[in-house]
Amino acid sequence: MRPARVRTAGTAAITLTLVAGLLVSVGAAVTVGPADLSIGTVWAVIGEHLGLAQADVSVLRDHIVWDLRLPRVLAAAAVGAGLAAAGAVMQTVTRNPLADPYLLGVSSGAALGAVLVIVAGIGGGMVAVSGGAFAGALATFAVVVLIAGRRGALSPARVVLTGVAIAQLCAACTSFVIIWVGDPNATQSITFWLSGSLAGATWAKLAWAIPALAAVLLLVLTQARTLNAFAFGEEAAATLGVDVTRTRWLLLIATALLTAVLVAISGAIGFVGLILPHAARFLAGPDHRRLLPVVVPAGAIFLIWVDTAARTVFEPRELPVGVLTALLGVPAFLMLLRRREVRG
């Protein structure tokens, strides 16, 4: 039995450690890769670009750090943090421990949008594909909300079932388009994209993702106590003064928008939004005021290192990061389930 006071002090320490770990991870992960870089070089380049110091680093190294690796590492951090937070909120709002940020069909819609853009050959390269993914994600989410929220209440069961159905429909349409077109290049890029990858991260995409992440995280943090009220169900929350319908709409829309932005950057990276909230609850307990400050940096660190492994372990091949998150996520999930049973 962990006394709650110890738990509170412990959580503050965990949060601080994780935030420090996140900073160190960003710096350290940038050094990992085919071109050897020291952590000193990395910080020197970052310092120079932020106008803090003059660095004496070659143009090539500067390019590798600033244009290639740093955006990717930051994108991993943003996507990891965002998916973990969105997953925690989704699990609470739907009262479903298996909920994840893709529950509303956002990822399948994004894949369909991306496929359509690739097949139609609109515009050039990754920017158009990301745009298509974002549009597809929003369209799917809109359809799910229109169907599930028809009577205004947006009941969790309807949301989950509608999300599953629409996701299946999108997946079927995606397969159909891929097979119909039969373009091997399109098929290959889609496969990579469906499994999730951070290879296409750029500063331009981060300029969208980081403000979206910051805004949604701030919103979610102001709702931490309200989220706690859902512990015994929505009727209990309502009798504690929570406007359940409004809260659910607000949080589902905010997390779905964030997820759409993230999916447009990285494709559907599975298991982060499902596992990290459970792991963080295990560390910090179920109170969202302690859980959210732990799950956000934990998600960021987790995805930074998994992505670093994905791009380096099988060099020169790169694994889709979603493959690795699943490989790590499934055993972690089973372990958590087991511990829960032992304790419960």
Partner: peptide, 25 residues
Amino acid sequence: ADTDLDLTVRDVVLLGRIPHRRSRW
């Protein structure tokens, strides 16, 4: 009342303070 969250009794009783909250945090 049922939950599958690992709440302490203090956490549960503190829920009753939500309507009286002065701080969001």
